[in-house]
Design a protein around this nucleic acid. Structure first.
Lengths: 242, 242
DNA sequence: CGTCAAGCATTAATCAGACTAATGAGGATC
DNA sequence: GATCCTCATTAGTCTGATTAATGCTTGACG
């Protein structure tokens, strides 16, 4: 799921996976605009130099993501963006790799501002010792990475922290949105880099949040997370939504 | 996407789609517990009476949903629930059809309590005339259906209302969660039926919500939606989360 | 007896080509 | 002009053969 062919991710460059990415990128890049019918299967097989089974499995994947629809006699046609399942793990990472788009970035952050405080509240009510340990570990990694000036590693630990928080909420829906949150954080990091800002100004707040959760203070945890995200919003140059 | 073979949904009973459902149901029902390897492709083809291409496309779909993982020499193994992408449209409807599960239902409702008030707030800021018209139409349908005592139709209109609200928020992430919200509402409706309760006690609140949005009152809209959901929580016998 | 490497067997992944079915277009019929 | 029939196009399905990945067995070696 997380491995592409680009990085030598231990082993096996499956054909259809590569094809899926190729086709998806073509669509994302706009080579095939919405409503456009792409060439017949046999022709595409020729172009891509693969067999029909492999191509069909690739197309199946893209159909399940809402990017394509196939009908006999008509061909395979590209669906408008509105039909895509943008929260799909693959689609999310691809569109991030190409170009997230300002509107999408804003939507992601708005969603974080709503979901993460709620997750913090629930975590304060339900977090298990294991959950707290995961949060502590991530926080320790963040602290260490910042001290070392290793910002990529800091971002990684930051993401781990927020995902651990979602898991601690014990809410299945929130946990399922981990991909979205993780992607949003990765984008935020890249934007910070682009602006030559130092990320991690809110490090101490993360520690305070753990304290709140440990103290079983749902209101405090929720507020702390809101404040944390408000700082992040300023860092990103967003107005914060209010 | 939305059509199954069960209902005569205008035309074409595709083989692999039926197979996907069959396999998914077997897994959901627990015939194949997590970690279990299902029979080799050739054998499964025999059992199901289909060709390998069809079976393979079906398995691809389930792999993309996180339910299966295939490795040469080992076979295709069933993944634990934690690896499944539960917010996937198909998976959501299937697990609802089989058995939602109390924990999952609670998670869905908690997510609604967080997301929908926020969507209401954003709608008050951004709703276009078209969005308002969609809300009005859905509300009118609700009113009419309730007057006629047609509860299934009422539920349908209710879902349309909430989806229109998400769309009016202009937040891509919220819009993408339409499936989840719709499913949650459908479950809520079935639970109400099971308890022999009359749904729709909060009808007037929906109208008030439209008024708030029309008046561009974000705080009022958010509060109204929260109250509306609190009523729904009571109807469902949930404690409401606070 | 334990360790490691080569070969073997199993299974998914891929390829190749034919056949089937759905469906819109265009022509024949009235 | 409208209706029905035929046909061409394209995705869907089937069949079976080949390739590649990988755990397991086996046996050599220490």
């Amino acid at each position: 799921m997380t491995d592409d062919g680009s990085l030598a991710s231990r082993g096996k460059p499956r054909v259809h996976k590569q094809t899926v990415k190729t086709l998806a990128f073509s669509i994302l890049r706009g080579d095939f605009p919405a409503g456009h019918v792409l060439p017949p299967e046999t022709e595409l097989c020729d172009t891509l130099g693969i067999s029909r089974s492999a191509l069909r499995e690739s197309i199946r994947a893209l159909k399940d993501k809402g990017m394509l629809v196939a009908r006999p006699r008509h061909g395979t046609i590209v669906q408008p963006r509105s039909a895509w399942q943008l929260l799909d793990a693959d689609l999310l990472s691809w569109s991030m790799e190409i170009d997230p788009g300002a509107e999408f970035v804003l939507s992601l952050f708005e969603a974080r501002q709503v979901i993460e405080p709620a997750a913090a509240r629930l975590s304060a009510l339900r977090a298990t010792p294991d959950d707290l340990a995961a949060l502590e570990t991530a926080f320790a990694d963040m602290t260490r990475a910042k001290a070392a000036g290793d910002f990529p590693r800091f971002n990684e630990a930051d993401i781990a922290f927020h995902l651990a928080l979602l898991r601690a909420s014990s809410n299945v829906v929130f946990i399922q949105l981990s991909n979205m949150i993780g992607t949003a954080l990765a984008i935020a990091f890249r934007m910070s880099i682009a602006r030559a800002r130092e990320p991690g100004a809110s490090l101490s707040k993360h520690g305070d949040l753990i304290t709140m959760i440990r103290a079983r203070d749902p209101v405090g945890a929720e507020n702390m997370m809101s404040r944390l995200l408000a700082i992040a919003a300023i860092d990103l140059g967003l107005n914060g939504g209010e």
